[in-house]
Structure formats: structure tokens, C-alpha cells
């Protein structure tokens, strides 16, 4: 398989990257690890004539305790004993991503901004053409939920839920300046599914910041999939809480692999702040999360099963993180 020709640039500063992007009205993609973008390019998915590689911008590769540059390779991060020790829940998610070979190239920022996936989208040009394409690329209708307004492709990153339960933030650098926002605010849940983030034109995700509170939390991540490597999540469940004197506070639950964006369920967990999380309550909470999601049939396992597994996986994760707190 060959790649269609494109221009390739390797700026050394964020500003230079912005300038290159702005000078190319025909469109450009920022290139991080390439493990998601290049397969998509080989399949002619949403090609742009220019790639701007971010691999030579030192600032993006920096690791500094609670701040991790977006271009840090996942393989390097999982070998970072300091990071793994601080954030074991994130480390668990890291080790479950794709394969060690993919993680050698893939980056933190790339995983957060992973293209959504769907078995009508992640196909070759030939395959998609034989079906008349789809809403997400080159076509005007969705084959998963037949209509022409919204794309239902699934967010398949593992790190976003694991970081979201730690209240991680992301720093974005745009031509107009920098801003830091909560990680989950990056994702546009209200959108049409094609535009999935609130990134502004040319904006670059530069780093992820973990607040001091993140280190105080117990956290876990578990992933449903057919094979224990290679596969994207059919469901990713992250749970974190702060355990003090046997009581759980700051409980967070986040899911990936189930909707178009990662999602956290504060509306269900906030009312439980400080309440004892005994078995029945955990079961109830897990059932409430399950009731709140609507997976569609666009991954390997059927959506009704994935939905039931939300209940099981969330309950188990809660037990792992806060189970001990329920025992007086």
C-alpha cells in the first residue's frame, strides 16, 4: 500500500507549526506518532495535502512530573518509573493500548485526539466506495444509525478516561494564544460527531497536566476487548476516588469506547460524595451508569452486550477502588 504524496514539514517551535498551518489553506494535519493517522492515510481517509510533524518541537516532548508533553511516546511513558508510580491507573491504561510496537511510536497527545472509529469508516477506499462512503468521510449518510446528521463513530482512546478521573487538564496552543482547559472540555459531546473536539483551527495540544489531587486518588482502568492486545477498547472504564480514613471522596467514573467522546458521570457520583459505598450502592451506581449510555453497533462486540458490560465493569472497578471503604 502506498501513501499518496503530501508535503512534510518538521517545525522546531509551536509558533513555526502555527505559521505552516496558517499558510496552507488547502489543509494540513499535524502528525504525532502516526500510528493512527498513517493507516488512515493509507486507506485514503480524510487526506490533507500537508503533514506538519510535531516531532522536532522540544517543548512537546518534555516530561516534568505532573506535566507531560503531548509528543511523549507512550512506550517511554510506561517505562517512566516516576510517572507509573504516581499514576498507576493511567499506567494501567497505557499498558493496555494497542501493542508495544504501536506504543513505541504513538504519543500521549495522539491517543487523546485519536480519530473516532467505526467499521464503516476504518476501511479501504475500495470498501467504502462499494457502499457509497459514509458521513464521516466522503459521503453523506451514516450506515450505523441511518440518517444524515450525526456520526456515531466511537471514541477509542484509552488514556482519556483514565486521565479524566484524575481531573487532568490539557494545554492548547493556538495562533491566538494558549489556554488550559479540563481534559473533558476538549471533547465536543454536543457536536455532530464529525467535529469531535473544541480545538480551534491550527491549535496544538501541547501537554497534559495532572493536578496535585491526582496523586491522592486511588484509580483503576479496565478494558473490554476480544484480545488482550491489538484491539481498541469495546469499553474502557476508569474509576478514581480519594480514600481517607476508610471513606471515599472525589469519586469519578469515566468511560471510553462506548460513545463518540469520552464521558464522565459526575451527575451520578457527586450526589454520593462522602456516602459509604457498600455493595448495594455500588451495584446501583453501576446500573445507573449502564442506563445512561447508548452504544451503537459499530465495533466488534454487539452494543447490548457492551452496555451490559458497562454495569459489570463499573461495578468491579468501584469495588477495586472503594470496596475496602465499605467495610467498617
Amino acid at each position: 500500500m502506498h501513501l499518496d504524496p503530501f508535503e512534510l514539514h518538521r517545525p522546531t517551535t509551536v509558533e513555526e507549526a502555527h505559521r505552516l498551518y496558517a499558510e496552507r489553506p488547502a489543509g494540513a494535519d499535524y502528525l504525532a506518532g502516526g500510528t493512527d493517522l498513517l493507516p488512515n492515510y493509507k486507506m485514503h481517509l480524510n487526506l490533507r495535502p500537508t503533514l506538519i510533524s510535531l516531532d522536532r518541537i522540544p517543548e512537546l516532548a518534555r516530561r516534568d512530573g505532573a506535566r507531560v508533553g503531548a509528543m511523549v511516546r507512550l512506550g517511554d511513558l510506561e517505562r517512566d518509573a516516576d510517572f507509573v508510580g504516581r499514576y498507576p491507573g493511567v499506567a494501567r491504561a497505557l499498558r493496555e493500548i494497542a501493542t508495544p510496537l504501536v506504543r513505541a511510536s504513538a504519543t500521549l497527545g495522539g491517543n487523546l485526539l485519536l480519530e473516532t472509529r467505526c467499521f464503516f469508516f476504518n476501511q479501504s477506499e475500495f470498501w467504502r466506495a462499494s457502499l457509497g462512503y459514509c458521513l464521516k468521510a466522503d459521503g453523506d449518510r451514516c450506515h450505523v444509525v441511518p440518517q444524515k446528521e450525526r456520526c456515531y463513530a466511537t471514541f477509542s482512546g484509552d488514556l482519556a478516561p483514565a486521565l479524566a478521573v484524575l481531573d487532568a487538564e490539557v494545554e492548547l496552543a493556538g495562533p491566538g494564544g494558549r489556554r488550559t482547559i479540563p481534559l473533558l472540555d476538549l471533547y465536543d459531546r454536543a457536536g455532530d460527531g464529525i467535529r469531535r473536539t473544541h480545538l480551534r483551527p491550527g491549535e496544538i495540544l501541547t501537554s497534559v497536566l495532572l493536578p496535585p489531587a491526582a496523586r491522592e486518588r486511588s484509580a483503576t482502568y479496565s478494558k473490554l476487548r476480544v484480545r488482550p492486545s491489538f484491539d481498541f477498547p469495546e469499553l474502557g472504564v476508569a474509576v478514581a476516588a480519594r480514600i481517607v480514613d476508610g471513606r471515599a471522596t472525589e469519586l469519578r467514573i469515566a468511560l471510553g469506547g462506548i460513545e463518540t467522546c469520552p464521558r464522565r458521570f459526575d451527575e451520578l457520583t457527586t450526589p454520593l460524595e462522602g456516602a459509604p459505598l457498600d455493595g448495594p450502592r455500588r451495584r446501583e451506581l453501576a446500573a445507573a451508569v449502564q442506563a445512561a449510555v447508548r452504544p451503537v453497533h459499530n465495533t466488534f462486540l454487539p452494543p447490548d452486550y457492551r452496555r451490559r458490560m458497562v454495569g459489570v465493569y463499573v461495578r468491579r472497578a468501584l469495588t477495586e477502588v472503594v470496596g475496602a471503604t465499605a467495610v467498617p
Binding site: F119, N122, V226, R227, P228, S229, F230, D231, F300
Partner: peptide, 10 residues
């Protein structure tokens, strides 16, 4: 990726 050959861990 979508045709599920067994991995070493399985």
C-alpha cells in the same frame, strides 16, 4: 486488526 487471530497472551 478486525480478524481476531489469537495473541500470545491467549
Amino acid at each position: 486488526l478486525d480478524y481476531k487471530i489469537l495473541t500470545p497472551a491467549q
